[in-house]
């Protein structure tokens, strides 16, 4: 009979909320891992070893076309204008393309910011590969300067054939605490030559 039941130790009950508080914070890395695997939040494209990607050895299917639309946003209050040169292009999966984005600093102060990319739909995000992107680093813009910035990218042929339209969205944010440039910052000027930009994989 249960009259001799053993009391439940209090620490066992207390351990549950303590563990669950930890679990709440563990959801942050879990969410990142989940998104990297599924492309859920459109971010995973920056994680692929994209700089080693080449067109060679790929069987390109020239009959297949995917439309890539470029979307640009600027964080509220940031005195910048930011837009793509051409709203969309048709691409053949596997082939490397270059798109150009134009950013203009409309203020009299130097702006250090970074563009945060997002690719949708999610099933395309895991296959969207950037060989080179201004979003990999912080960017510095001189007052009233207008610059062009390149993105070299492709959509891997492994992408589901149902995916016909992909959008690549960037939002430009002010880098909060960046008062001066760090060695990671790319200083943009309007007369730069794209071929000299060193590409860096993102962290």
């Amino acid at each position: 009979m249960s009259s001799e039941r053993k009391p439940v130790k209090l620490w066992k009950i207390v351990a549950i909320p303590v563990a669950m508080f930890g679990f709440a914070f563990s959801l942050v890395p879990l969410y990142t891992v989940f998104c990297d695997l599924t492309g859920f939040n459109g971010k995973s494209s920056t994680l692929i070893e994209a700089e080693n990607y080449s067109e060679k050895g790929q069987d390109l299917d020239f009959s297949r076309k995917v439309s890539v639309t470029f979307v640009t946003n600027v964080a509220p209050g940031l005195p910048m204008v930011f837009y793509p040169k051409g709203d969309a292009i048709e691409i053949i999966p596997g082939k490397i393309y270059q798109a150009t984005f134009i950013a203009e600093n409309r203020s009299d102060k130097t702006i250090i910011g970074q563009a945060i990319p997002s690719v949708s739909p999610p099933q395309a995000a895991v296959h969207f590969r950037k060989m080179e992107c201004f979003c990999f680093q912080e960017q510095q813009f001189a007052p009233r300067d207008k610059v062009e910035m390149p993105v070299r990218f492709t959509v891997d042929p492994a992408v589901d054939t149902e995916v016909k339209d992909v959008s690549l969205a960037y939002t430009f944010y002010l880098k909060k605490n960046a008062q001066k440039t760090s060695d990671k910052t790319v200083i943009r000027t309007h007369n730069e030559d794209f071929s000299k930009i060193k590409t860096m994989p993102s962290g």
Binding site: I13, I16, P17, V18, M20, F21, F23, A24, F25, L27, V28, K176, N177
Partner: peptide, 22 residues
Amino acid sequence: LIAVMPVLAGAVTMMLTDRNFG
């Protein structure tokens, strides 16, 4: 309650540090 109230506490703590601690 003991399983999910701490998760809310975690969420609002993250909110607090986002708001005040960068």
